[in-house]
C-alpha cells in the first residue's frame, strides 16, 4: 500500500511537471531579481557603504535578525501563491485528464484500486506540492543569503557577522514547513471538492468547480434567506486557526523600544495546538473525506470509457 503510494505520487509528478517547474521558476526569478538589484546597487557606493556600516555598528543582533526574518519569510509569499494556484489546477486536472485521454483504461488494467489512485492524488496536493515548494524555498533562501554575503563582502562588510550569524534560517524553515503542511489540511474541503469535480464532470472542470461555489450560496439566500454555506466558505479564508495574534506587549520591551529577541521568530507565531483544537479544522477534514469518498465511488462505478 505505502510503496504503491510512492509509485503513484511519483507518477503524478512525472505527469504534472509544473509541480516542480513552477516553484523552480519562482525561485529563479527571485534570485535573478536580487542579482539585478545588487548590480544596480553597486552604482550607489556611498549609500551602500552607509547601509553596511549602519547594519554592522548601529543595529543590534535582534534588529538584524528581524530584518532577515522579514526578508526570508516574506520571500516565501510568491511560493505560497504559486502553490495555491498549482493545487487548484492540479486537483481539477488529475482525475479529468485520465478520462479525457482515455489512459484511465490502462491505469485500471493494473492491480491498483480506485481508492489507492484517488488517495494518491489527494496526497500529491496535500504533501507533494507543499514539500516540493518547501525544498525549493530552502534552496532559494541559501542562494539569496550566499549572494547577499558575497555582495556584502565585496563591499567590505563582514558577511559572517551580518548574514550567517543573524539569519534565523532554521526558525523560518521549521515555521514554513509547519505552515505549508497544515495549510492544505485547513483548505482540504476545497481540495476534496476539486478532486470530486475533476473525477465527475464531463467538461470544463474549472467552471464546474467554481460556479457552484457562487450559485449554491446565492440559491440558499434566495430560498432560505440564510447564508450558512457562504459563511462556511468565507470562514475558510479569514479564520485560519494557525497563528497566535501579534502581541505588542511581548514584541517590545516596556522600557526601550527595542524588539524582544524571543519574539523575532516565525515559529513563535505558529500555534499548532490551536490548529488541532479547532473544530472547524476537523469539520473541514470530514467534508474533504466525504468528497474523496464520492470521487472514489465515481471512478469505480461510472462507466463512461
Amino acid at each position: 500500500m505505502i510503496s504503491h503510494q510512492f509509485a503513484l505520487i511519483r507518477r503524478e509528478i512525472w505527469e504534472h511537471r509544473s509541480l516542480f517547474i513552477t516553484p523552480a521558476v519562482v525561485g529563479l526569478v527571485m534570485v535573478l531579481t536580487l542579482l539585478t538589484a545588487f548590480i544596480f546597487a553597486s552604482g550607489y557606493q556611498e549609500i551602500v557603504d552607509i547601509g553596511i556600516v549602519g547594519a554592522q555598528s548601529l543595529a543590534g543582533d535582534t534588529e538584524r535578525r528581524a530584518a532577515l526574518l522579514a526578508v526570508l519569510a516574506g520571500n516565501t509569499a510568491p511560493f505560497m501563491i504559486a502553490g495555491a494556484i498549482l493545487t487548484v489546477f492540479y486537483s481539477l486536472d488529475s482525475l479529468y485528464a485520465e478520462r479525457k485521454n482515455k489512459s484511465i483504461l490502462f491505469w485500471r488494467s493494473l492491480p491498483i484500486t480506485d481508492a489507492e489512485t484517488v488517495i494518491s492524488k489527494l496526497l500529491t496536493t496535500v504533501l507533494a506540492i507543499p514539500l516540493i515548494a518547501f525544498v525549493v524555498i530552502m534552496v532559494t533562501h541559501l542562494l539569496i543569503l550566499a549572494m547577499t554575503s558575497m555582495f556584502v563582502s565585496i563591499e567590505g562588510g563582514s558577511s559572517m557577522f551580518l548574514i550567517w550569524k543573524s539569519a534565523p534560517l532554521f526558525d523560518v524553515w521549521a515555521g514554513m514547513l509547519i505552515i505549508m503542511i497544515l495549510l492544505p489540511v485547513w483548505f482540504s474541503p476545497f481540495i476534496g471538492w476539486f478532486l470530486f469535480v475533476s473525477g465527475w464532470t464531463k467538461r470544463s472542470p474549472l467552471l464546474m468547480a467554481f460556479l457552484p461555489l457562487m450559485l449554491v450560496p446565492t440559491l440558499e439566500y434566495w430560498v432560505l434567506r440564510t447564508h450558512l454555506i457562504w459563511d462556511a466558505i468565507q470562514g475558510r479564508f479569514d479564520q485560519l486557526p494557525l497563528f497566535k495574534g501579534i502581541d505588542i506587549e511581548t514584541l517590545f520591551d516596556d522600557s526601550e523600544f527595542i524588539a524582544n529577541a524571543d519574539a523575532v521568530s516565525l515559529l513563535a507565531y505558529v500555534d499548532v495546538g490551536k490548529f488541532f483544537a479547532s473544530p472547524h479544522m476537523w469539520a473541514g477534514l470530514v467534508v474533504c473525506g466525504l468528497f474523496i469518498t464520492a470521487a472514489i465511488y465515481v471512478r469505480r462505478y461510472r462507466d463512461d470509457s
Binding site: R11, W14, E15, E98, N101, K102, S103, I104, L105, F106, S109, S305
Partner: peptide, 12 residues
C-alpha cells in the same frame, strides 16, 4: 488487457 491502441498515456 489491451483495450484499444490509444490508452497508454502520451506524456509518459
Amino acid at each position: 488487457f489491451i483495450a484499444d491502441v490509444a490508452v497508454l498515456p502520451r506524456w509518459i
